[in-house]
Write a protein that binds this DNA or RNA. Sequence first.
DNA 1: CATCCGGGTTAATGGGCGTTAACCACATCC
DNA 2: GGATGTGGTTAACGCCCATTAACCCGGATG
Lengths: 219, 219
Amino acid sequence: MSDAQAPAQISRREQILREAARLFAERGFHGVGVDEIGAAVGISGPGLYRHFAGKDAMLAELLVGISERLLAGGRMRIAEGGESPEAVLRALIDGHIDFALDDRPLITLHDRELDRLREADRKRVRQLQRQYVELWVDVVREVHPGPSESRARAAVHAVFGLLNSTPHLGRPGALPGRTEMAELLHGLALGAFGAVAREAAEGESMAASASASAAASGA
Amino acid sequence: MSDAQAPAQISRREQILREAARLFAERGFHGVGVDEIGAAVGISGPGLYRHFAGKDAMLAELLVGISERLLAGGRMRIAEGGESPEAVLRALIDGHIDFALDDRPLITLHDRELDRLREADRKRVRQLQRQYVELWVDVVREVHPGPSESRARAAVHAVFGLLNSTPHLGRPGALPGRTEMAELLHGLALGAFGAVAREAAEGESMAASASASAAASGA
DNA sequence: CATCCGGGTTAATGGGCGTTAACCACATCC
DNA sequence: GGATGTGGTTAACGCCCATTAACCCGGATG
């Protein structure tokens, strides 16, 4: 127990978590059996119970885990405090994009299977999510002081939907690669946030805000 | 059977579909039992089999239905052809927002439970979805000729994620009401699409693209 | 009046699945 | 070199649940 404790690679436990995440994301929590999860890591069926109290416990650990990591990442980037509020917002966006692109299954689970948790775990996850959202809301309102808080919060939720959309994409290579995708999403998110500010700035001419940007090109 | 055929309101069948949609969206396809669906419409358990071949058939009808209505709506708005490509894009966005806000459960199901369908139905739904996406891609590229097709397609997917984010929102009234929400989402979507164009227009200075907004486009 | 038949009912069937029980092998420690 | 504990195994239990069977009732049909 003294030296060989850090056994080279990831523990069996984490291996199970990764496969479970993939399967849950693919077929839903209820859609995948405990035997399949076992098979995915080379052991079969009830062997999983040597590592987890039950199927629910796996999902709980996955969801709490990603919620905590998202929040921690967000707090870190805010604490680092870029040169400007805009820089902080860009850092938040990039951080979230990294999560969305690298941990697709978890991002999917994160808003799909939350209700399958036991009350206590669900409350914890929701609380973490709420804190994460508020982090963003504060930064967004700092960058774009116009809109009301509820408007800003709704915008943040919507942009999360935008950033988290990557997992749902068609399999074939009809889409950009990872780095181009990250850059594109970054731009889309900034554009969306910018719009909420522009909209608030202009009194009422909502229609004009659309064409104002690129309209001249067609004409 | 001659006169009283259109019996005032919605048929039992449609009643079942609506409740099933709500329950599936809330707890997942596998998470809701056939007895619960029956209970939700006042009959119990296997009585549903007088109206549907099985649980799968309900889901299939729901998903094919919404996919068809989305596509039909999109085609209609394009056929009507607004005064400009921009107007058509705005119409598409508004139409989609109406769906997202009025048929939340269906929008949720639409990208959550697709894999629970039998092969044939799944193929059909995917085909309808693909056609709908291509509709948008064409219009977006007309409005913003800069970006590559794959870039435009990814942007459309992302904006769908944005527009479809409404169902996942916190219950309490911490968010804007329906009309304000629609307006906000409209602005966010336009802002996102605008960004993909701006980004492509400017060579590399990505950071500036946020604040530059409308100014740079003419030049 | 007898007959259908649409739309229900409850009971039975059968399979899938999460979990537990009982048992086992190997490495490590003393 | 026997005790111990960790990480497996397979078999069994029990529940849940979709589907089917068998039966029923009320109204339109003729």
